[in-house]
Amino acid sequence: MSNETLIIQTGLSERPRKSRLPARLDFLQSASGLFLALFMWGHMFFVASILLGKDSMWMITKFFEGYYVFGGKAYPWLVSIVVAVVAAVFVLHAMLAVRKFPINYSQFKLYRAHAKSMQHGDTTMWMWQVYTGFAMFFLASAHLYQMMVWPQDIGPFGSGGRMWVDGLWPFYLVLLLLVEFHGGIGLYRLAVKWCWPNCSREFLKKLKWAITAFFLILGFATLAAYMKVGYDYQENYKNGEHYTPTWAQQAREGAK
């Protein structure tokens, strides 16, 4: 057993100097949350490319697979790497955030009664952050795992088929709601916590709801678009086909 372990075990590790770890953990919780929230904004815009058409979505997919860097060759494992990094930050954030959760039923009961009696927006919103965060432990993990292991299935046919043929649209609908509420509240909390310009909470709250509404509408429309693609091309998906962009189809037909 090391000397350090013994000092920690005897509860004397914080003497004479208090550990700097709580400061770092607090900062990391905020930083990892900010990273994930900003990533989700980008993510939403990338997946929403389907609203502009299957070709647009295909281009975005291929961009992340390095198609435009490696001279027309796509490497889906590049996506796996990005997903792995996001998953690592996700796990880190979950680990840090869970420190704030009620740790037993008694704490949960006290907080719930407090929120109910206070009728205070920020206090109630935190409960929703806990609920949505807890649900995402499972749902976001499942999504991240799927994207990391089968990145080649991301594309108009693959993503559409997943929604419609595999019937995963309810899963994504719930995940969308969880992400948008958790992320929106989280970003608002970050602004208040670190006191961003003049800290008008009224303004920040309005901004928060506007952003949440925008991403929810975009998310619903995107989900519907994938369901439609999935429905229209269900046979292609079942046959394991990957989408071919319009210009490539035309070039192929021209060659014939």
């Binding site: 709580p22 205070h120 920020d122 935190w126 208040v192 916590k193 006191c195 909470r201």
Partner: peptide, 28 residues
Amino acid sequence: FGCMSLLGCHDVCPKELPLQTQIAFLRR
């Protein structure tokens, strides 16, 4: 670092102290 910035404190303070700003200042 235990403060979650729910700011019930700020909203009920009968002396209307700028608690939100002070806590953020201390945290930074």
